[in-house]
């Protein structure tokens, strides 16, 4: 039953996404403008770091290649999730205007419908930018590429995307109760990816502990990246903690799934 539910969800997700991509391509000019605009936004986002490094050689003890590595990994992981789940912040609006009901009368899981709704291909801009910067940093980093480090790189990106996905889903679930509070989600998603673009040494250890034990954003890229870069853990955790990223990701997704189920149940018992 659970397996067929997952299959149905993925199938519906693919169907709806396919439809949106086709409809986006019907307005090709508009799509190109939006994609370029998105790319420009993300480029300017990195321009801050470029401008900072025009004045200094290191931030928090990390040089430009290292900060770019952090930026590239954070941005790629976030970009993957934003592409796949970016529409989830519209849940609150759907609850308010009553269109959530129309999703509940269709024979496919609601989560898949919400995630695929208004799928915006233009969001690949961030992934392109993230991968490009990651590539640049890899060429300029001075890293001893042992097999564990090579392995950790893709694992980090996928786990990071999954942790962000859990945040998107949990944030959307929260909107079943607080339908006006979509912006809270941005604090954790956009705020999270911005924070992770900088070295953990820039922030206070309390803040690093908070994003380790309360909201485990540090597993998106910080801890795995520190292992790859051969740097010590800022809050004294063992060096291999970066390898726990997939486990953390699975736990986050499970919790987010529970939160989503609870949110949907609350909606179906109150209707508002």
């Amino acid at each position: 039953m659970a397996e067929s539910q997952l299959y149905q969800g993925l199938r519906a997700y693919a169907l709806i996404v396919g439809m949106w991509v086709r409809s986006t391509m019907a307005y090709r000019t508009s799509f190109v403008i939006m994609a370029l605009g998105n790319l420009a936004i993300t480029a300017l986002d990195f321009a801050v770091i470029g401008l900072m490094f025009s004045h200094v050689d290191a931030l928090g003890g990390f040089d430009l290649a290292e900060v770019t590595f952090l930026y590239g990994t954070s941005s790629t992981a976030f970009g993957l999730t934003d592409l796949a789940f970016g529409s989830m912040e519209r849940v609150g609006r759907r609850v308010r205007d009553g269109t959530m009901d129309t999703l509940l009368v269709r024979p496919v899981p609601v989560l898949a419908q919400v995630a695929a709704d208004r799928f915006a291909l233009r969001r690949v801009g961030r992934i392109i930018q993230g991968v490009a910067l990651l590539g640049w940093s890899l060429a300029h980093l001075d890293v001893n590429w042992t097999w564990d480090r090579v392995l950790l790189l893709p694992v980090m990106l996928l786990s990071g995307a999954a942790i962000f996905a859990a945040l998107f889903v949990a944030g959307a679930a929260f909107q079943f109760w607080a339908s006006d509070a979509a912006e809270v989600q941005s604090a954790f998603t956009y705020g999270g990816t911005t924070m992770l673009q900088f070295p953990p040494t820039v922030f206070t250890t309390e803040l690093v502990r908070a994003v380790t034990f309360v909201l485990p954003l540090a597993f998106v890229n910080w801890f795995p990246a520190l292992h790859i870069l051969g740097r010590p853990n800022p809050i004294g955790l063992p060096d291999g903690i970066g390898f726990a990223a997939p486990l953390v990701a699975v736990a986050c997704c499970a919790l987010a799934g529970l939160a989503w189920g609870a949110g949907l149940r609350a909606y179906r018992s109150t209707g508002s």
Partner: peptide
Amino acid sequence: RTRLARRMGVVFGQR
């Protein structure tokens, strides 16, 4: 819900 959804049609006048 989803099993029944295949057998029913719904029209909401307002949305």
